[in-house]
Simulated scan of single mutants.
Amino acid sequence: MTNVLKEQIREIQDDVIRIRRYLHQNPELSNHEAATSRFIQEKLTEYGIAFQTGYAKHGVLGIIKGTQPGKVVALRADMDALPIQELNDHPFTSNYANVMHACGHDAHTAMLLGAGHVLQQMREQLKGTILLVFQPAEEDSPNGGSKVMLDDGVFAEYTPDVIYGQHVWPDLPVGQFGIRDKEMMGASDRFEITLSGKGGHASMPHQTNDVMVAAGHLITSLQTIVSRSLDPLEASVVTIGTIHGGEAANIIPNQVTLEGSIRTYSPIIRKRLKERFFTITNQVAQVFEAKAAITYLDGYPATINTPKWANVARLAAQKINGETPNVSPSLAGEDFSRFLENYPGTFIWLGTQIDIPEEQAPLHDAHFKLNERALPIGTSLLVQVAIDTLEKLAKEENE
């Protein structure tokens, strides 16, 4: 980074931390980010950044036009919180019961605002346009806010040539970046199965079709999809998260409901897994003379980076914090994947591990904390990767 850029980051970093703490204290759930959206608009106005609204209800698009002609680069941050009761004791815990920024979206929004402020000051050096995409409802799987923003025409006037997203990552040391050329995060599908049979007295099972026994066999059988029906070199997971059935110890219920999640990377594996899921569920139900009602929700696709732009991001990261180590992908889902289905780009992890790693809670945990020393580093990357990408696009156009 240039000394000028470093100084601009130093000037804005305290504001980034203040913004993050304010948002952390005032979290809003998916599709309810009205106050967060207003706050973002107020900060963009304060920074002199033009913006548009009306995307996915609360989404905001900041627009920074360089004085030199060129291509378009988009930077995205998500805004929503989770339905979790915060159990931390720092001075800026959530003001609202059962609502918490336990996934770092408060930090994402704060860093993008900070990057926007710096980039707005650099308009005379920018060869093109930078879009600041503030996305609601990332946690609203399987729907998500990115598709709605796209459907609402967020890029109708300015179409990005490249798009980047960044996510705090507690498994990485503070300030370290995780960047992969291809698979970054997994597809995340959900399902609900209701097994219906004939209930009765626990002492007379022969008079029933015991759906509880059927459910037990189904849970075990579904695990054979990954172990026996799919390529063992391709990662995938089938998880049963909830099971509900029965009202008393001496009654065989007539209905049991199971809910769960399926995670994959490859579209081919995803399709095959879904086929086997339906086949096994229906056949297990048939064996036990029960009926299976299946609701299967196709969730976020896998987050697949574009190798070319992953390399640009990696080089930008090296300018800020040295070498970026190899990281393994995660099967966690991410709504940024839908942007990458439509535009080339890259999703980046930012290490935010606290100073005592043994006390680090994971994402989506009531004790989740992040190391705020990472915030100016993440802000720096957003600025650097935007500048470098515009430069590369301009060079390619002139070749």
Score class of each variant (00 low, 15 high):
148 V>W: 01
138 E>V: 04
224 T>R: 14
179 I>E: 04
242 T>C: 12
252 I>Q: 05
241 G>H: 07
167 H>F: 06
245 G>R: 08
221 S>P: 03
240 I>F: 08
224 T>F: 12
143 N>F: 14
202 A>P: 04
150 L>H: 00
169 W>C: 04
225 I>L: 03
191 F>S: 01
187 A>G: 15
192 E>K: 15
177 F>L: 05
147 K>M: 09
182 K>L: 11
138 E>F: 04
151 D>V: 06
245 G>E: 07
141 S>M: 14
205 P>V: 01
260 G>P: 11
155 F>P: 02
217 H>W: 10
251 I>K: 12
237 V>W: 12
256 V>L: 06
183 E>V: 14
252 I>M: 05
161 D>E: 14
197 G>I: 14
224 T>P: 14
211 V>Q: 07
234 E>A: 14
195 L>C: 10
218 L>P: 09
182 K>V: 09
204 M>G: 00
175 G>S: 06
208 T>W: 05
187 A>C: 12
248 A>Y: 12
160 P>T: 04
202 A>G: 15
242 T>W: 02
201 H>K: 09
187 A>V: 03
180 R>Y: 06
154 V>K: 03
230 L>Y: 01
152 D>R: 03
223 Q>W: 11
154 V>D: 01
151 D>A: 15
183 E>W: 15
184 M>F: 15
233 L>F: 14
176 Q>P: 00
226 V>L: 10
176 Q>V: 15
178 G>C: 05
211 V>W: 12
206 H>S: 08
250 N>E: 03
156 A>K: 15
149 M>L: 11
220 T>Y: 08
239 T>Q: 11
189 D>A: 08
160 P>L: 11
142 P>G: 08
182 K>D: 13
222 L>A: 07
227 S>R: 11
177 F>I: 01
234 E>T: 12
215 A>Y: 10
204 M>R: 12
176 Q>S: 01
242 T>A: 12
228 R>G: 06
138 E>I: 07
178 G>R: 05
141 S>L: 13
259 E>T: 15
163 I>N: 00
187 A>R: 11
164 Y>Q: 06
174 V>T: 15
150 L>E: 00
196 S>G: 06
146 S>V: 14
214 A>Q: 01
235 A>S: 14
258 L>F: 09
209 N>Y: 05
229 S>L: 00
195 L>V: 13
257 T>I: 14
204 M>Q: 09
159 T>N: 08
205 P>N: 00
192 E>N: 10
243 I>R: 03
194 T>E: 13
155 F>M: 08
225 I>K: 04
188 S>A: 15
211 V>R: 06
253 P>A: 13
139 E>C: 11
165 G>T: 00
203 S>E: 08
237 V>I: 15
177 F>S: 02
208 T>C: 14
252 I>D: 03
184 M>N: 09
253 P>G: 11
182 K>M: 07
